[in-house]
Amino acid sequence: MSTLKNGIVCSPAIHAPGEREITFSQAIREAVAEEMARDERVFVIGEDVAEAGSVFKVLVGLLDEFGADRVIDSPISEAGIAGIGVGAAITGMRPIVDIMFGDFTTLVMDQMINQAAKTHYMSGGKLTVPMVLRTTLGASRRSAAQHSQSLHALFSHIPGLKVAVPATPYDAKGLMKSAIRDDNPVVIFEDKMLYQQKGPVPEGEYVLPLGQADVKRAGEDITIVATSSMVYTALEAVDKLAEAGISAELVDPRTTTPLDTETLIESARKTSRALVVDEGYQQYGVTGELAAVIADGAFYYLDAPVKRIGAMNVPVPFSPAMEDLTIPSADYVFETAKAMCG
């Protein structure tokens, strides 16, 4: 195992000497391009995905590489393009539907929840919906209440959907490739604040299974489970905890559905304490589910109640003075973890 500059521990296979580093954004783009080259059934549809290369410039160059038939600029019709994704997937294609802000996924709810998620089951296993819906999460871009939410819990609630929340460029690429190859509808949430985050990504082909957590940092005294960009928030806290003499283990589930319950429970049993951090609203959120899974599976090994930190239960405010209060901070994670170990 080796430690990267941002503190993330990766296996040697992930971080070989001299390995290149690319951004999260480039990792996503590479994954999509590789899968489009590998499988002609894969196409991208969404608002501003072609000419503009998506609003966050993640898909720049795909139009030139694959043409307008496979990288399709759509009207501002989220439900419509999600529906097109479902129909195309049922009939033999592998669409990637791009919803530029996670907040806009409210407009695709019927297509994802009542159609995509249930088609395989309702048809008795005859029809499959191999589609990817890629979208974003995360506050702190001063974008106010309708462009800042982290709504992955909504989709994680629904049987039939898979949900990925990658934190690193390596994870983003591997999970995106798996999502495209998966025969189920998969929703990938990319944190807007991570797009420029750099990390090691090997040149060659690899995929990461959906449903396998990753221990980003090994530790002994407390388990901190964190998702998406909260992995970095938690890492900062882990470093401070180390200075305070507390050895924290950082576990990144990488996908909320399917959830690698085994790794979460095993870690909590080992450390005897668990704290869950996620950027979704705390009420009825991902933190609640993860905490319950740990409490159920590790209860007799725990020295403290499982704690959780989500976003405040308020619409995300515009003013920086208020917005920053609403999302979990490294200091708060540190203080909470320290108190649990006291």
Binding site: I84, T91, G92, N114, S123
Partner: peptide, 25 residues
């Protein structure tokens, strides 16, 4: 038959997606 639908109008997108699939294939 790509499926009957319990949501009124819910299959409009699916049929259109089938049309997109036909075009792409």
């Amino acid at each position: 038959n790509l499926g009957a639908n319990g949501i009124v109008g819910g299959s409009a997108g699916i049929a259109t997606g089938a049309g997109m699939s036909i075009k792409l294939r």
